[in-house]
Design a protein around this nucleic acid. Structure first.
Lengths: 195, 195
DNA sequence: GGGTTTTGCCTAATGCCTGTAGGCTGGGAC
DNA sequence: GTCCCAGCCTACAGGCATTAGGCAAAACCC
């Protein structure tokens, strides 16, 4: 009556599901073991320790998100690509809050050097190339877009928008429009803004 | 030989210092007790439990940050006020990373209803009034500014900018300039951007 | 000023979690 | 059929949160 043979991948997948249900800090080796119908120490044959398990969730989430973003911006340019990029992030953060939360922390070396991370850089760069941004401005634009999107989703996730009307969606649309407008004009007047 | 008489305030202050040194999740009742030269259970006479202690740190941080922001934007308008507002946040996040981190999570009722929270709303509103934003647009602008600033500082804090040049400061300046430009034009063309 | 109450820190103890050490077993290799 | 070993198990050693109850000194009351 062997269940799933208990591999590192299976453990991390279960942990990711748990993260979505119980929050990222709710991810505990004992809880994962319980869900898998196994004793806690059995997990140590497959994952080094709790930190490694959490890093595994981060790597998984990064790769899942990169895939979604790739699909969302494929064959699109400018405004549509930006919206696809942003909506992919938002959908992920809303559907898989725990996985998404795993990305909001200092990533371990494994995640940083993963192919998903490189994928991300390439995707964002492609997005910005479409806007005609000069290469040396792309880092800053990347950082700005990342800050705004992640920042919005983070504030939404912790309920910062719960105490004021209207619904976050309205602000979200305006935010994306603002980003789009900004990128449109960036190439023409970025250089004389900051001397 | 009574040291400091051990009050809730003293405990929370010590916990906040610990958070800055060991990270917010490093804040543990035992560690705080050790630092105060006291046994762990002794803390329970003053704080209900660990969650209450963490909420205390959040409330403290919120109030400290509100004070700094108030000073930073006093007597300034527009671009200068925005820069003051943003720099106050950034300085706080760099000088007191643990306290700042305590703000990046779902706040307890105590913090939400604190006078510092109300202070924040008022300060941001004042900032935006200076830009001549129509009242119904202020929520969205507030959310956008908050998203971008917090998002940038969060990414900087977790080291997302460590693997690309140039230094974050350059992107930070460009980000603030972009926000300023955005707010400048918001009042004139916000309404025809999102129908 | 002496007795009493109150306050505030203490020790003791429980339960959950991480992480290590070592035992048992069942299925594949030969 | 026997041997080997991968893989899960039990046992155990800390560390932390939290509760219960003791004790001593300060505060208070008359």
């Amino acid at each position: 009556m062997t269940r799933t043979p208990l591999t590192a991948t299976a453990i991390i997948a279960e942990a990711a599901d748990l993260a979505d249900e119980a929050g990222f800090d709710g991810v505990t080796l004992s809880a994962v073991a319980r869900r898998l119908g196994v004793q806690t120490p059995s997990l140590y044959s497959h994952v080094r320790d709790r930190a490694a398990l959490l890093d595994g969730i981060t790597a998984l989430a990064l790769s899942e998100l990169a895939d979604r973003v790739a699909v969302a911006i494929a064959g699109r340019a400018d405004r549509l690509a930006l919206h696809g990029f942003a909506e992919a992030h938002r959908a992920y953060s809303l559907q898989s809050p725990g996985r998404w939360q795993s990305l909001q922390r200092r990533a371990g070396a494994a995640a940083v050097e993963s192919s998903a991370a490189r994928s991300f850089v390439a995707l964002t760069d492609a997005l910005l190339r479409g806007y005609g941004l000069p290469p040396e401005e792309r880092v800053h634009a990347t950082r700005l877009i990342g800050s705004t999107i992640n920042g919005f989703l983070a504030l939404e996730a912790i309920g910062s928008f719960d105490h004021s009307a209207p619904a976050p969606e309205v602000s979200w649309r305006k935010t994306l429009d603002a980003l789009d407008a900004l990128l449109m004009t960036w190439s023409t007047d970025a250089q004389n803004r900051t001397p």
